[in-house]
C-alpha cells in the first residue's frame, strides 16, 4: 500500500488521475496537453512519463498498446483497497 500513498502524494500525479477520470484511455500527448492547459503544470514530457511510471507501479494506471498507439487508463482498484481497510464506522444501534 506504500506505493499507492506515495503515488498520490504528488499534486501532478493527482492531476493526471483527475484528467484520466475525465476521459479514460489517453495518449501521453493528451495528458501533457491537459496538464499544461488546464492545470498550468509545465512539466516536460519526460517528467510526465516518469509520473506515469510511478502511477503504473502503484497499479493506479495501466498503459496498453492498441496497434501503433499507446493509451493510459485509470484503475481505481488500489484506492478501493484503502476504503475497504478503513471503512466508515457503522453507527451504534443506541444512537439511532
Amino acid at each position: 500500500m506504500d506505493d499507492v500513498f506515495r503515488a498520490i502524494a504528488d499534486p501532478t500525479r493527482r492531476a493526471i488521475l483527475d484528467e484520466l477520470v475525465d476521459r479514460n484511455g489517453q495518449s501521453l500527448f493528451e495528458i501533457c496537453a491537459r496538464l499544461t492547459m488546464k492545470h498550468g503544470i509545465t512539466s516536460t514530457r519526460q517528467a510526465v512519463s516518469q509520473h506515469l511510471d510511478v502511477l503504473e507501479a502503484a497499479g493506479l494506471v495501466e498503459s496498453r498498446r492498441e496497434g501503433r498507439f499507446k493509451f493510459h487508463w485509470f484503475n481505481a482498484q488500489p484506492l478501493k483497497a484503502i476504503v475497504a481497510r478503513w471503512p466508515e464506522p457503522r453507527p451504534k444501534p443506541d444512537q439511532s
Partner: peptide
C-alpha cells in the same frame, strides 16, 4: 481519432 475534441480553454483540439 486517438483524441476526441478536448476543451483546453483557448482551444479545442482533436487528434
Amino acid at each position: 481519432f486517438t483524441q476526441p475534441p478536448t476543451d483546453l480553454g483557448p482551444v479545442i483540439t482533436a487528434v
